[in-house]
């Protein structure tokens, strides 16, 4: 497959920490508009993969291209985010001393330089956009609450809302339903599927029922490289996958 048509193109990416190989010759491609679930045992390199895509960790070797041309390994986090790659952390990370509204306002797609933010005045469209997101994430009634006072599930949703406000081309979502009730999990799955229509999404998740609810192509990582790829049913049937992950 050539890199040109892809949204995200990882080829031969390796990262090691003190001799431990977190990523080992990892190759992966994502097409525009695609949604992908990534599963794998602990230490398979799922979070490290997100780190190298978002610029938090520099790979030792390998190529990472965005939209077939931009080399992500040369860029810092902020520039990568501004290219249109949004990230949701495993542990919900929101700005706790700010209100829900302010959290979304900070995430909202807008000029990011200090002087621009100093003189920023919220426009009618921006206000409408935030209202929209508040509705989507069902946080409307809590818009003035401090983010720190939200429940765990609400924080997860707020963070997804912030991703939406960022309006990225590619969303990286790390364990979005960790610690959620079944009902919340189901809502989250529906929310992500809605988003997937307009954006490309990579979801890392342990929860098999959630992955099944998403109903998308699955990549199984193990020991820093791709073990199998395909529909959930096909990878579930893969003997290697059963051995290293599902079977246990």
């Amino acid at each position: 497959m050539s890199a040109e048509d892809t949204l995200l193109y990882l080829d031969g990416v390796s990262v090691s920490f003190d001799g431990f190989r977190a990523l080992n010759n990892l190759s992966l491609t994502m097409m525009p508009g695609e949604m992908r679930a990534i599963i794998g045992p602990n230490g398979a390199g799922k979070t490290t993969m997100m780190d190298v895509i978002t610029g938090k960790t520099r790979p030792d070797h390998g190529t990472i291209l965005f939209e077939g041309e931009t080399d992500l390994t040369k860029l810092r986090e902020a520039s990568i985010a501004n290219l249109g790659i949004g990230r949701k952390f495993q542990r919900p990370t929101v700005f706790e001393p700010h209100s829900v509204w302010d959290n979304l306002e900070l995430a909202l797609k807008a000029p990011r330089s200090p002087l621009k933010t100093l003189t920023y005045a919220i426009s009618r469209e921006d206000r409408a956009r935030i209202e929209d997101i508040l509705d989507i994430t069902r946080l409307s009634p809590k818009r003035d609450r401090l983010a720190g006072s939200l429940s765990h599930g609400e924080k997860q949703w707020l963070e997804i809302g912030m991703l939406l406000a960022q309006d990225p081309k590619l969303l990286l979502v790390d364990e979005p339903v960790a610690g959620m009730t079944d009902a919340e999990t189901e809502q989250t799955a529906r929310l992500l599927c809605d988003i997937a229509g307009k954006h490309s999404v990579i979801v890392v998740e342990h929860d098999m029922s959630f992955v099944r609810a998403l109903g998308v192509k699955v990549t199984v990582l193990a020991e820093g490289s791709v073990l199998a790829e395909g529909s959930l049913d096909s990878v579930s049937a893969n003997q290697q996958v059963i051995d290293v992950y599902l079977g246990r």
């Binding site: 920490f17 003190d18 431990f20 977190a22 490290t48 938090k56 960790t57």
Partner: peptide, 8 residues
């Protein structure tokens, strides 16, 4: 320096 994820 210690290198690794813990440092970050």
């Amino acid at each position: 320096a210690l290198k690794g994820r813990a440092v970050e």
